[in-house]
Design a protein around this nucleic acid. Structure first.
Lengths: 198, 198
DNA sequence: TCATACAGACCAACTAGTCGGTCTTATGAT
DNA sequence: ATCATAAGACCGACTAGTTGGTCTGTATGA
């Protein structure tokens, strides 16, 4: 699992995998039909979990602003739980076989749509700036958060929860309408106080 | 070149490369010592160019706000010129041999530091919000911009220049101090009018 | 005539996947 | 309790196919 993070999917042989896990070639192919299936399983466990969490966050709040916060905060937590999965997910997805790739793409698109939809609703509700294009803004948010997998270390100066607070703060300042940003109403929009305001 | 984008570095054989380019195994190995060297050359041509552009942008402006804008706008333009390179750069760097990897990492770090330094200066100059942690904010900006390679198509609804405008707008709203954001001074801080304000 | 650019058959090394066989455990009849 | 039986879990030497890289040879032009 951590092997992939260092050498990539093609840089790790099945022999290395089974050695690390303490099983054998036979054992491996008893559980997986192919190395490609393992790749799929890794992808699927992560995206399924992330999608579930995003849906819950999405349904818990009414206001788009709070929705967005909850989605981001819950997603960011996944980095602590599924770091190696996430690495494989963003790094090795090109190597998925076509049928597997489609299954993953569907779930990935659903996740993307949850974010974009939140932005759309925010604009309609007058909470987010209307001059921002919905899709690009959504992708910008996604990019900022997703990129975390490239540099986040659990041993770093900030916990993943703190990083999540910063992201939420950056994003809200970026997209909220002026009034919401300047007045003291900003704090009322938060679902929880970020660490740097405590 | 475009082959890598579809199949990944390990998914493309040297035979496929030479066939596509219209040369031969002998021709290929006359110009490159190994497939790994080709991978390095692709990495290096991109990061060298991007770094040069960032340095120019960095030296052209004094105000950190304008610096940051110029860096982002110039970097985003690279997506049109070096799309396939960028894909390889972010997707296949784990497969670089150690000595090559180090050379690339050095330049990559330099690029990262230019952005982080701009954020630092902005905070010191009182232009950016002081409560934001410098490194995380820098990485958030980088992530938002870099992620573009995952979804940007030249045939899309927005040009890369327009996308750059949006990024700059999002980032500035995210990190500028309140005053700069609310008052009409915002427009004065821009190095050029973004497309959606024209 | 020599250096450089290129061609393509060939090779050594490596890897995903197989397959005959062994070990473990659950069951059920005695 | 004991043992026969069977099914599933697991083992690892082996194979067929692939791939990066080599090497000998040829063409071109200065």
């Amino acid at each position: 699992m951590y092997l992939f993070e260092e050498y990539g999917f093609h840089g790790v042989t099945v022999n290395q995998i089974v050695e690390k896990v303490g099983t054998s070639k036979g054992g491996f192919y008893h559980h997986f039909t192919s190395k490609d299936e393992l790749l799929y399983v890794i992808h699927d466990t992560f995206i399924t979990y992330a999608l579930k969490k995003a849906r819950i966050a999405n349904e818990t709040y009414q206001s788009p602003t709070k929705k967005l916060q909850a989605i981001i905060k819950s997603f960011v937590k996944v980095f602590d739980l599924y770091k190696p999965h996430i690495f494989v997910f963003y790094q090795e997805h090109i190597y998925l076989k076509d049928n597997y790739k489609q299954l993953i793409k569907d779930k990935r698109d659903q996740f993307k749509q949850i974010i974009i939809q939140a932005v759309r609703e925010g604009k309609e509700a007058g909470e987010f700036r209307k001059e921002l294009p919905t899709e690009i803004t959504g992708m910008a948010i996604l990019g900022m958060v997703n990129w975390t997998y490239k540099w986040y270390k659990q041993s770093g100066n900030y916990t993943i929860d703190e990083i999540g607070d910063i992201y939420v703060d950056l994003i809200l300042h970026a997209i909220l309408v002026k009034d919401a940003c300047t007045e003291s109403t900003y704090e009322q929009l938060l679902i929880e106080k970020p660490f740097f305001m405590r």
